[in-house]
Design a protein around this nucleic acid. Sequence first.
DNA 1: CTTGACTTTGGAGTCGGCTCAAAGGTTTAC
DNA 2: GTAAACCTTTGAGCCGACTCCAAAGTCAAG
Lengths: 162, 162
Amino acid sequence: MSSDLTVGQLASAAGVSADTVRYYERLNLLPPASRTRAGYRLYTESDLERLRFIKQAQSLGLSLDDIRMLLPGSEAGLAECRRVRDLLISKLEELDARLGEMRAFRRRIVAYLKECEQALAGKREDRCPVLFEISHSTHSEAKPTKSRALRNRIDAKKGRKP
Amino acid sequence: MSSDLTVGQLASAAGVSADTVRYYERLNLLPPASRTRAGYRLYTESDLERLRFIKQAQSLGLSLDDIRMLLPGSEAGLAECRRVRDLLISKLEELDARLGEMRAFRRRIVAYLKECEQALAGKREDRCPVLFEISHSTHSEAKPTKSRALRNRIDAKKGRKP
DNA sequence: CTTGACTTTGGAGTCGGCTCAAAGGTTTAC
DNA sequence: GTAAACCTTTGAGCCGACTCCAAAGTCAAG
């Protein structure tokens, strides 16, 4: 309470950008901040806790929509707990479905890889058996745009504030 | 030539929309289709296989950029095979890394779920212990990688062709 | 008093992967 | 011969979670 924070201070305390804080406010993930006479947003420690909670939950793979459902509602302990449990169960189901798919895909990749290695060891294939399996068409290539997914990951890993 | 397909036929055979097929063609994921005199696209079985491969790879979380790299280039047999092998190896590594992350995430969810169930069984908590923990854990590194892919897959499962 | 680092707003842009609309041309079924 | 159901193109819109921008206001240090 000794410490009221501006957006920028709150943001850097939580390791996000000021834009992100305002964005969360628009989405009702953070309550509308009180203001100075000049209109600057003012935040308290509890806003910081809440913001950290959001980030933490997000790092668990929850979407902002999911998180909004987790944020302090009006119910008391047990009801709250049931709500959380239901969300966790549904996330777990999603996760398991996806894990199953990924393991199947892994088996497929491994099988393809084995075929490749065999063809390379035998040195007698006139074309990659994997590609033969996948498709018979040859097709000319445009320029290989650098993967955006990769760039996004890199951006995400290093520091928040530009 | 027994089985030439129009874009709509190809699309529904693969369970995607015609728009998606044309979109893939724009992205060079499918070779430019041959045309009838009237300009209609014509596809073959091998296009269908290729399209199915794309969907299969995609359902496991590979981006279209990733997939493009797995698709046939113009080099001859062994070189081609080496390229495919190298890509398969790197995808396999990625996949394993991701599987590891997901399993860790899963353990965390399961642990939280257990706490919820216990609190509900004991009926003595005044506050959900999971919410308490999340709000008091230290926020390390946010990595919301899977949310998006996860939701995309879910959308993909039910919402086909409206 | 001026500089420069903050703040405000609304609105636009980004990325991947579609999805839809508009305005027209073609093919097929009756 | 005509209507339905295809097909063509270009180009815009959608989602989630930001991110950036411009133009203007505010605040603290020197």
